[in-house]
């Protein structure tokens, strides 16, 4: 790995003195860097209306029930996600958090009830159409395209918004070149945003675990979602990495995205979310601000166990 990089850098010096964004970043002063970060944020979310309609309901779960045979995994769950907030979805193991996620993103179809995005029911839309409608997600067990480079993984995300078809691709029509150029720029900006720009050229399967988690977030953001769903993004992280992740999630929200977060780590949930929904045995047992929920006796009994543990 290191040998490889040494080799490519030495050939690189002869080709272009710039050495790309990564080398450039290293040379920047603090102020230049901040200006550059603003640019990146702009490129990541070009037409997001920040703070315009924060507060209205972006996604609504209306009496959603999911059954597997006789097992009721989700029992008439209703809650809303407001535009611009970070909503935490918590609950003990097997409470139905991931099922809830899957019902939202079209992996399962609700047996009863509806999922509405901006007031319109998602109905029987195919999964890729739900992504285009504006819901993106990451996976609890990382599912990247291992043989692709990090950059290509993110470009696949941007492809959700692309219109290049087989004919334009076969004949290399101008649309292909325009879309490819924009996609690469944007994907690179996203990699920078999540902090792994220096690994852009590496294959996803060769990335360290933390970078893979970040890459999943970048790939999901590339689909230009209205709602970003993160399924246990901190699983397997050490405390320092969790801190960085919390900062990243906040930056994503500040950039104008709405975030749904499933997480086991109570510290992370309480520290980063605006509101929390608590599930137990497929039912919603509480909803509210983290501090309130943390003191709710039902939640404490069901999930937090020892009261002191709650907001620790």
């Amino acid at each position: 790995m290191t040998g490889d990089r040494g080799r490519t850098e030495s050939t690189e010096d002869g080709v272009s003195p710039g050495g790309g964004i990564v080398a450039e970043l290293g040379r920047m002063t603090g102020e230049e860097r901040r200006a550059h970060e603003a640019e990146v944020a702009e490129a990541v979310a070009p037409d997001r209306e920040i703070a315009v309609d924060v507060g209205d309901t972006l996604l609504e779960m209306r009496d959603v029930t999911v059954r597997f045979g006789g097992l009721v995994a989700l029992d008439a769950v209703s809650f809303g996600i407001r535009r611009g907030e970070i909503l935490g979805l918590i609950g003990p193991n097997g409470a139905g958090k991931t099922t809830c996620f899957n019902a939202m993103t079209g992996v399962y179809r609700p047996s009863q009830g509806q999922v509405l995005l901006e007031g319109r029911p998602l109905g029987r839309r195919a999964r890729h159409q739900i992504t285009r409608a504006g819901i993106a997600r990451t996976f609890q067990n990382i599912r990247l395209f291992g043989e692709m480079t990090a950059l290509e993984n993110v470009v696949v995300g941007t492809d959700a918004r692309h219109r290049t078809g087989a004919i334009s691709a076969l004949l290399r029509l101008p649309r292909l070149h325009r879309e490819e150029r924009e996609a690469v720029e944007k994907a690179m900006a996203l990699l920078e945003f999540v902090g792994i720009a220096d690994r852009a050229a590496d294959r996803a399967r060769n990335l360290p675990y933390g970078c893979q988690r970040r890459l999943e977030i970048a790939r999901a953001l590339a689909t230009e979602p209205k709602l970003l769903c993160l399924d246990e993004p901190a699983a397997g992280f050490n405390p320092a990495e969790k801190e960085e992740l919390m900062a990243l999630i906040r930056r994503i929200r500040d950039d104008g995205y709405t975030v749904l977060l499933i997480e086991h780590d109570m510290r992370l949930v309480m520290g980063v979310t605006d509101r929390v929904v608590v599930l137990e045995f497929g039912r919603k047992i509480a909803e509210g601000r983290p501090a309130e929920v943390g003191e709710d006796p039902a939640v404490v009994a069901a999930y937090l166990g020892v009261p002191d543990d709650g907001v620790a």
Partner: peptide, 10 residues
């Protein structure tokens, strides 16, 4: 890759 990353892809 050369322009943005500063090294070729793997």
């Amino acid at each position: 890759y050369r322009r943005l990353v500063g090294r070729p892809e793997q």
